[in-house]
Design a protein around this nucleic acid. Sequence first.
DNA 1: GTGATTTCTTAACAAAAGATAATTTGCTAT
DNA 2: ATAGCAAATTATCTTTTGTTAAGAAATCAC
Lengths: 189, 189
Amino acid sequence: MFDLIKDKFPHLKDKWDDFVSYYHRVEVPAKTVLFKEGEISQKAWLIEKGCLRAWFNNNGKDVTFQFFFENEAVSGAESFRKKIPGFFTVETIEPSILHWIHKKDLDKIMSDMDQIPEMKNNMLDIAFERQYHYMKHFLSFIKDTPEQRYLNLLKEKPHIVQRVPQQYIATYLGITPVSLSRIRNRLAR
Amino acid sequence: MFDLIKDKFPHLKDKWDDFVSYYHRVEVPAKTVLFKEGEISQKAWLIEKGCLRAWFNNNGKDVTFQFFFENEAVSGAESFRKKIPGFFTVETIEPSILHWIHKKDLDKIMSDMDQIPEMKNNMLDIAFERQYHYMKHFLSFIKDTPEQRYLNLLKEKPHIVQRVPQQYIATYLGITPVSLSRIRNRLAR
DNA sequence: GTGATTTCTTAACAAAAGATAATTTGCTAT
DNA sequence: ATAGCAAATTATCTTTTGTTAAGAAATCAC
């Protein structure tokens, strides 16, 4: 599970082994809530196997805004810099194998890493990656119709369409499940 | 103009003065193009006075996706990490006073700054800031109607509504100018 | 396997948005 | 001041989405 990252910085092996020892492996069924909207989460998660969604309540309806898959990390405050307490809920979509770590252990490790310049560069890369991701996502909303957006998703992230229930995809695209069903029907012929 | 940033890092004054000396001040009328979609821009810009928009061509119609005001910086590749060559055009909306710098000079300065840890932290902060900004913007598309989005803009960024022509605001909100006019009409009574 | 629950589809209607064009308003330059 | 141009509004029509509800299909629990 953690080998990917270890391979990236082989000379930091000791620090890394230390890091890994803080993690706990768990297997959970589908629809398990990892942390709830409104609560300040004490854990951060890594996904070994399975798939999650982040969603929030918008006037009584739940709106999914992000999906997570294997080898991705999830924490309550989307970026560890900006400490916005969780305005969203994260739960499993499929039965999953996860690794969690106490927030305070992670914080300690993070401040250690802050001393390592190459780690900082790595964090910068991740930050820019996310910025780019959100920007592209937002651009698709101002330039494409919902139908185009669905076609783009099919093309660029087919695993989402394959593994995620339609109702979650619908709100992710900014439309209702009924409307997504109609779009699919329209496209089918 | 540059004092804000100088105040932030007083002990880097020399480096900063050096930095500033590379800049050139210009006054330009409204609708001046700073760099064009498709071209690789050789300049980066700082705004002393005025207001700009970034837009791209989407099937023959121009779509505005970002506004810039006093004390903000603009370059062809939205993030200096990810070197995506300009897929967009930047032009002035109002007559403006700008400061530009050659890309290669900026690159040199940037790699110098890369050595200074606190500058790196500053860049991390900016990156997270932008990530957060784009995320919030994208969230407003999946949770709000165009009308709500316009009301939010009025409330949270009234300066945009005050200084920017309506047609640009419309595409920024993901709707047509005609539709925005109708929304305003609807809200007026 | 079978019943129960959830998810997806379809239908009918209302509300909103896109497209196009005509009209009005506002701004700029001379 | 006024002619000319660009921006905003209004009107008409078409298309799409939202909403609600009902029915079909798929999934889950036992």
